[in-house]
Computed example of a mutant assay.
Amino acid sequence: MKKLSTLFLMGVILLGVLAAGCTSSQTTTETTTPTQTNTVPLVADSSGDVNTQDLQSYIDSLPAEPLTDAEKEGLIYMVEEEKLAHDVYTKLYEKWGLPIFSNIAKSETTHVESVRMLLKKYNLTDPTASEGIGEFQNEELQKLYDQLIEMGMKSEVDALKVGALIEETDIKDLQEWLSRTNKVDIITVYENLMMGSRNHLRSFVDQLKNRGVTYEPQVLPKDEYEAIISSPMETGGGMGGKP
């Protein structure tokens, strides 16, 4: 019960960071599911790794249009959030030696690089450029990182719950930022990252299930969460845009 209470508290903390990162006065009601219609090329695989070479080629083929303040804010926030996931998983792998953390940390590297492509394209300063593991310019993300590490160091189960919680939050944040842009290149990156996060969430939930633990969603609506974990791993179809 104590662990469940701790997880609930972390969910509340994550929701607070979500609110800080996405300042829109309205929350999107759109539900993202694995069966959404693909209007952009999906170049992530079942491990969540993004084919950055293909993605870069596609991004370069699109014109650089003026960004809104919200679009700039979203890119700067998401590059640090993806780095947070990478850094947490790196530290949890060092502690527990579970391959899932090493594998997904590698995948998160491609997620960070995907957002960096857009920062470079639009001449935005990369807040992660000179930051080491566990270092963030966003104060709320710095605080969140510290809290997640503290929780994940308690046990393997707590560490896996941290992973699931991060992926839930990543999906929710990406949905929010998607609702605030109409730029095809940004949408393409966010859709690929979100598909990767759904695969990562499935992996963490499966690992917990193998240990006899039923994970309860902390951030996503339960019906959306169930739709994700009850669906198979997704694989992008490359530049054709069809899975």
Results as ranks from 00 to 15, higher is better:
Ala19Gln: 12
Tyr190Phe: 14
Met1Ser: 02
Gly74Cys: 04
His86Val: 03
Gln175Asn: 12
Ile13Cys: 02
Lys121Ala: 08
Ile59Lys: 03
Val184Glu: 14
Leu75Thr: 12
Gln53Phe: 11
Glu81Tyr: 06
Asp146Glu: 13
Asp54His: 09
Pro232Arg: 05
Gly163Trp: 05
Thr35Glu: 13
Pro243Ile: 00
Phe136Trp: 10
Thr28Asn: 08
Glu150Gly: 02
Leu193Pro: 10
Leu55Ile: 07
Ser24Ile: 01
Leu42Arg: 05
His200Ala: 11
Arg198Asp: 04
Met78His: 07
Leu62Cys: 02
Ser130Phe: 09
Gly240Arg: 10
Gly237Leu: 09
Ile149Cys: 04
Lys143Ala: 13
Phe204Tyr: 13
Lys172Gly: 00
Gln26Tyr: 13
Gly134Lys: 06
Leu55Met: 12
Glu226Lys: 10
Val50Gln: 04
Lys161Ser: 01
Val112Thr: 10
Glu65Gly: 00
Asp146Met: 09
Asn192Phe: 08
Gly240Asn: 15
Asp146Thr: 14
Ala64Lys: 14
Leu220Lys: 05
Glu82Ala: 11
Thr128Gly: 01
Val40Asp: 03
Ser25Arg: 09
Ser47Glu: 11
Gln26Leu: 13
Leu62Asn: 06
Thr128Glu: 01
Gly97Ala: 10
Lys3Cys: 00
Phe136Leu: 01
Pro232Leu: 00
Glu30Val: 12
Met78Thr: 10
Lys154Gly: 02
Gly163Ile: 06
Glu71Ala: 07
Lys2Met: 12
Leu148Phe: 02
Gly21Leu: 15
Asp173Lys: 13
Arg198Pro: 04
Gln147Ser: 11
Glu216Ala: 12
Met78Tyr: 01
Glu234Asp: 05
Leu193Lys: 03
Thr188Trp: 02
Thr35Asn: 09
